[in-house]
Amino acid sequence: MSERKLRVLVGKPGLDGHDRGAKIIARAFRDAGFEVIYTGLHQTPEQIVAAAIQEDVDCVGLSILSGAHNTLLPRVCELFREKQAEDIIVFGGGVIPDDDIPGLKTAGVKEVFTPGTSTEDIVAWVRVNVIPRA
């Protein structure tokens, strides 16, 4: 009866208008049995963090193709810390150079998926790394 359903927010921070990847991930999460809150394009980090808190999600997956990942992803992590909500796991995907990944992880991003990653791999990663809260 009382079993947690995993809730994930999929968002597109920043200004790029390409949401096909985000929609495919959202669909893959749906098919994995998760509840997916999709916030759509052009979201500020502030909007994403507020939505994640109101929706009580376990994790946030952000798709960025604009090149602004080094600004936007750390900002989201910082805002979660400010709101004492750093238990919400942040992961990202998109066109992100390998050299940037260590810095993003230091900033609090738990994982970064680069082009070519299969949706199965991402779903499997979530199942292992995101445990719905007690």
């Binding site: 359903k5 959202a26 669909r27 999460f29 749906r30 098919d31 994995a32 049995g33 998760f34 509840e35 997916v36 809150i37 999709y38 916030t39 759509g40 939505a51 929706e55």
Partner: peptide, 10 residues
């Protein structure tokens, strides 16, 4: 699947 896409927030 028991999953859902909640898109009203868009």
């Amino acid at each position: 699947t028991g999953g859902a896409i909640l898109g009203d927030r868009i």
